[in-house]
Design a binder for these strands. Sequence first.
DNA 1: ACCTGAACACCGTTCAAGT
DNA 2: ACCTGAACACCGTTCAAGT
Lengths: 201, 201
Amino acid sequence: MERAESPPPGGVRADARRSRARLLEAARTMFASEGVDVSFNEIARRAGVGPATLYRHFPQREDLIAAVVGASLDEVTALAHTLDAELDPAGALSQWVAALVSHIRRVRGLSEEIMRALEVPDSPLAPHCAAALAAAETVLVRAQQAGRAHPEATTDDIVKIATAIAWTGEQSDTTTPATDRLVALVLHGIIGPGETQPLHA
Amino acid sequence: MERAESPPPGGVRADARRSRARLLEAARTMFASEGVDVSFNEIARRAGVGPATLYRHFPQREDLIAAVVGASLDEVTALAHTLDAELDPAGALSQWVAALVSHIRRVRGLSEEIMRALEVPDSPLAPHCAAALAAAETVLVRAQQAGRAHPEATTDDIVKIATAIAWTGEQSDTTTPATDRLVALVLHGIIGPGETQPLHA
DNA sequence: ACCTGAACACCGTTCAAGT
DNA sequence: ACCTGAACACCGTTCAAGT
């Protein structure tokens, strides 16, 4: 979906279009290498535009973040339906959570942005979060109906816990297995009536 | 325990002692109100000393943080033994995790520091984390021996998950019940063989 | 031995001026 | 309509100079 703001009558000027594209490209590469907390001024520098131009196109930092990583978040959302169709209830739920965690982990600092967007609903990232919550409902409800998920768990719980696990070890590039462990542990439950399945999901 | 650095032969000068005390006091109040990410310069200003004096006493930001909140962390550590003596295995484990979460939540930004300290072992906060891990072992092992905790769960898992939950909602002052829910959910397990206990711990 | 305040390079953000 | 570069107030950190 496109920006809701109506473009000027004569259409968007060519230089504006070009600036926006360069900013997005610069942000994409810098987010991927340095994380979401890179200097705003440096993104502008890298894009070859003035700082004010960056602010004109993306008034809030989160606007830029949403423009860059929103689509990637939507991918995970879409994945839920695939998993739901192909796997058993418990499998679909746990695979989806694992996928969500690994997606969030791909950009340093993203977990914090998502957590904020979950709390303040007028964030630019909020629509993508809402979509993810809807996707979570698909897999969660099915697992609950099959008696394979706690009946009181909510989609909010699921997404928050996934985000929190993704945040874990964000400081020092912990390898994926470490967070996989936590996902498995959380999903299988720490205190329970003595199930002894091994932890590797 | 005191700083390992040996004091100068003539003892610590009075003004140095006073500066240190003022810095700690200023940091304590500002950490409590604003969180751990307050401006270093402003702490110095509040303490009535120059910036360089702050750096002299606490070369790394984490040195100051450890000096201010270390003791509070040690309280939770001590609590483990009390709970262990008074409660059943599962109760002691879950109460301790809940206490850990609520302690970390009292200072905004602290969760991030603790997570870092868990990963990089030469952090000034690391000793306090190590103590907490040892305390976790007490309650965890007992719960495991009683068959009330996953046999493959480690103390590292416990403390990391608690820290991650504490981080949850740190952005927007979520009320305690919200994190209590997550603690209960994580402890009881999301996917398990159909236990239907209610979520309020 | 310890403190001070000025200094440096940076940051986020805005504003007047250009085309 | 859009961009520019200078500007402002701030930050973390360091350094020469004081006592």
